[in-house]
């Protein structure tokens, strides 16, 4: 009597076998973690008698790695939010930030050197290993009290200061790590 359920068994075997046909597990998460930051400006509002901070859209912004194997620039359009990749081979790396000026000539914002420590991190068998980073902090700067990148190189001096919101750069895509404040004169 129970033998009439043989087709059910065969069906199960077929379904399970077909669901298991794979040669390699697929990696479904980003392997390289990215550092995310936003660009802001501050100015003193005499009417309110306090400093006001606001997002600053950089027109046709460009981020270009300096000294990288592949120096292809990354274009972001008009945005105040950016992301970039840190160098897993060294404890620092440089990125060049620019925007399109009013006369269609690219205008340098700054060259930023990021300093950090690296930590090897196992993601999964499908994705292998990656590096997590911890941005270096410094006690104080003239403009902001705490959590400012120690040795960023401000060659063009359009960046006023850089605030580290979250020093740990991991595969958590919901965190913003830095806030870059540019000078009023850029506006």
């Amino acid at each position: 009597m129970i033998k009439k359920y043989i087709p059910i068994l065969l069906f199960i075997v077929c379904v399970v076998a077909s669901s298991c046909t794979q040669q390699k597990q697929a990696c479904v998460e980003p392997i390289l973690v990215s550092l995310r930051f936003s660009v802001l400006s501050t100015h003193w509002d005499s009417a309110l008698a306090r400093r006001i901070t606001f997002d600053t859209l950089l027109p046709n912004a460009e981020l270009r790695p300096i000294g990288a194997k592949d120096n292809t620039p990354y274009y972001f359009g008009n945005t105040a939010q950016f992301s970039l990749f840190l160098d897993p081979n060294n404890d620092s790396c440089k990125w060049y930030l620019s925007q399109m000026g009013g006369d269609s000539i690219r205008e340098i914002i700054d060259t930023i050197t990021f300093y950090y420590t690296r930590k090897l991190q196992f993601l999964s068998n499908a994705c292998g290993y990656t590096y997590y980073y911890n941005l270096t902090t410094t006690p104080a700067t003239p403009n902001l009290k705490n959590n400012v990148i120690q040795n960023y190189t401000d060659t063009v001096h359009k960046i006023d200061s850089i605030l580290i919101e979250n020093a740990g750069v991991t595969n958590n895509v919901n965190l913003e790590h830095l806030q870059i404040y540019i000078r009023d004169s850029l506006k």
């Binding site: 392997i31 390289l32 194997k69 990749f85 060294n90």
Partner: peptide, 17 residues
């Protein structure tokens, strides 16, 4: 044996767990 593949900065040297 592993290494991290990075097309921008270059692959990391081979490591061993």
């Amino acid at each position: 044996q592993y290494n991290v593949v990075d097309s921008i900065w270059g692959n990391t040297p081979k490591g061993i767990t």
